[in-house]
Each structure stands twice: as C-alpha cells, then as structure tokens.
Simulated scan of single mutants.
Amino acid sequence: MNEKMNPWLSVWVKPRKTMRYVIETKSMQYMLIVVLISGVIDILDKASNKNLGDSFALPLIILMALVLGPLFGWIGWWTSSGISYWVGKWFGGQGSFDDLRMAFAVSYIPLVLLGVFWIFDILIVGAALFTEAPEVPYSQIVWLIIRSIISVIVGIWSTVILINTVAEAHRFSAWKAFATIILPVVVPVFFVFLLFMFI
C-alpha cells in the first residue's frame, strides 16, 4: 500500500483501509500504547457509572485508573482478540491472531480520542462526576449533556469501526465480522436463559 495515512484521522471514514495500512506499516508496540490508554479511559467510565466517588476521593480514583486501567485494557484486548480470531475461523476468516489484535486496537482509537474529554470533565465538573447525585450548576449540566451525546455517537461509530477492522483482518464481509463479534455475547446469554427456564 503506497498511500500514507494517519490512522488517528482516517479510521473515522476509512476503517478497512486504515486497518490494512496499520497491519502493513505499524508495530504491535505502537498499537499497544492505544490499548493501554483505552484501558485507563474504560476504568474512568466504569468508576463514573458505579459512583465510586461516593466511597473514594477523586485522586484515588484517578490513581486506580492509571494503575489498573492498562492492566485490564491489556487483558481485555488479548481476550477479545483471541475469541474473534477463533470464532472468525468458523466463517472462513484468514486473519492471524496478531491481525485480530491490530483490529481491536485500531477500533479503540476513537475511544482514546474521546478520552481527551475526561480532562475537561475533571476540570469542569470535578469529583461530582463520580457521585450518585451530583449537585452541579446549570452550566456543568449542559456540558455533561453535550458530553453524553458525543460519547453515545462515538461509541456507536466505534462499533461500526470494529466490525470493519475485524472484517479486514479476516478478509471477509462486514456481516461475517458482525457475527464474529456478536456470537460470543449472544450464545452464552442464550444458554443462561435456557438454564433459568428449566430450573
């Protein structure tokens, strides 16, 4: 591939071409940085959703994210990539395990860029971000609403990107990629549902 690309920009509109470019030109260490940062952001998101600020001070929450985030991000990356590598083979996928790791890492790029908003979140709202019933002024509420809308849009688009990067890694259709991603989620839920039906 002769076309030079900036994955941080091109992934938004050309996910499959970006994926192929990354496989051919970028090292695993380069993508590992994306994975570790995404892990920090994921911990911050979970801390906010679980209202950890009701039990822990803001500096401790940030420290937990910086320490645990990269570890859990790395574990989740390997696990998700391994499952998609294995399931994708059922559909005739040709990607290697390293290709699938690249695919997931590339799909994390929008989430890492979204993580920049966390800096503004903490500066604008502070510890109230992590509490169950935050008392914040109207201006901060407006900011949180805008931030939530952007997060939903980026989250949906990240899923679209993941489907395309997995499709490119395995060199098959987006529909097969969708099945590769969704089956490991749907099948266990289905069996748990059947289990409860017969208990």
Rank of each mutant, 00 (worst) to 15 (best):
D45E: 13
I150D: 06
F191K: 03
F104V: 09
W143S: 07
I181L: 12
F120P: 02
G82K: 13
S10N: 12
P134D: 11
I124Q: 08
P59I: 07
L183Q: 00
L100R: 03
S38K: 07
V67M: 09
W86Y: 06
V125C: 07
L58Q: 09
P137M: 07
K50L: 14
F193Y: 15
I150V: 15
G69S: 06
P110D: 02
P15G: 03
V142P: 05
I37M: 08
L183G: 01
I33F: 09
I109V: 06
A105I: 01
V106E: 02
V11W: 01
L123F: 14
F56W: 14
Q29R: 15
F117L: 15
Y108R: 12
A127V: 10
L194G: 11
F190K: 03
M31N: 07
T165S: 05
L9H: 07
E135A: 15
I199M: 12
W175S: 07
I161M: 01
Q29S: 13
T165H: 04
G92K: 01
L114P: 00
V125G: 06
V152S: 11
W118M: 14
V35Y: 04
F72G: 02
S96W: 09
Y138K: 12
L129I: 09
N51G: 07
L58A: 10
I119L: 15
I23Q: 14
V67K: 04
S107G: 03
D98K: 15
I75P: 09
L9W: 09
M197F: 15
G76C: 04
I109C: 00
I33T: 10
D45Q: 13
E135M: 13
M19L: 08
W118G: 13
G39R: 05
T165V: 07
F193P: 04
I83M: 05
E24H: 12
F193H: 05
L63D: 09
L71D: 05
F117S: 15
T180A: 03
F91W: 03
A127D: 11
A128N: 12
Y85V: 02
L123K: 09
I62D: 05
R171C: 04
G115C: 08
L111E: 06
A174V: 10
V13D: 08
M64E: 09
L113K: 01
K89L: 06
M64T: 10
V152P: 05
V116G: 08
Y138V: 14
K14L: 02
L111H: 10
A167D: 00
T180E: 04
G82F: 15
I75H: 07
V67Q: 05
L194R: 11
T159L: 13
K89I: 06
M102P: 02
V106I: 13
W12K: 02
F178L: 10
V142Y: 10
T165Q: 05
G95R: 00
K26I: 02
L71K: 12
V160F: 04
F117Y: 14
G73T: 04
V40R: 00
I119F: 14
I150T: 08
F196I: 15
L52W: 13
R20W: 07
S96H: 05
W157F: 08
E132G: 14
F56P: 02
Y30E: 14
V125L: 10
M28A: 12
L52D: 10
L183D: 01
R147H: 10
